[in-house]
């Protein structure tokens, strides 16, 4: 990749969302790609480790109960 071409690609990227043109996609070197990936997973893992808020457990249990009631068991 030449310097000129690189600049052009960078500008294209900064114009952001636009449309999906494969041909204009820049490429990251593998080291940077790995660092971005590691950061992303580390951030995500932290979120995954958070305890499940009670509201979700309660929600699903409520639905279970409702179902049980319909069957006349309560």
């Amino acid at each position: 990749m030449t310097v000129d071409k690189g600049n052009k690609l960078a500008r294209t990227t900064l114009e952001a969302s636009v449309n999906d043109k494969l041909a204009t996609d820049p490429k990251l070197d593998s080291g940077s790609q790995k660092r971005i990936g590691d950061q992303l997973r580390a951030m995500y893992d932290e979120l995954m480790q958070q305890p499940v808020p009670d509201r979700f457990r309660d929600l699903l249990e409520q639905l279970d109960k409702k179902n049980g009631a319909k069957e006349g068991s309560q």
Partner: peptide, 27 residues
Amino acid sequence: SRVNRARFRLASLLNVEDIEDLGPDSM
């Protein structure tokens, strides 16, 4: 394509790499 551009943009926003051939000023 989106994944690729997302990584690229993150790298530039976070200044992860030496991006001298990718227009550091505009970045």
